[in-house]
């Protein structure tokens, strides 16, 4: 991709910082945005319900 006028000359060759590369990657974000609530909310929540004991 050409980089005309997208930054000063000394920036041209500099590597894009890791966090910026993460934020520029919608599919990585998509994975994180689905996996995080799926694990913390859904899976943890369903595990809690499956552990409710039977009444005596």
């Amino acid at each position: 991709m050409s980089e005309q006028s997208t930054g000063s000359a000394d920036q041209q060759d500099e590597r894009v910082p890791a966090m910026q590369r993460l934020l520029d990657n919608p599919f990585l974000l998509l994975f994180m945005g689905v996996a995080t609530p799926a694990a913390l909310y859904l899976i943890w929540g369903v595990m809690e319900l499956s552990q409710v004991p039977l009444a005596q």
């Binding site: 991709m1 980089e3 930054g7 520029d24 945005g33």
Partner: peptide, 20 residues
């Protein structure tokens, strides 16, 4: 050029949450 506009990034956020 470069990164997507901030407004589009907000829309990416909305679309990711929509998929979940």
């Amino acid at each position: 050029q470069g990164s997507i506009p901030l407004v589009t990034f907000g829309a990416v956020t909305a679309a990711i949450i929509a998929v979940f």
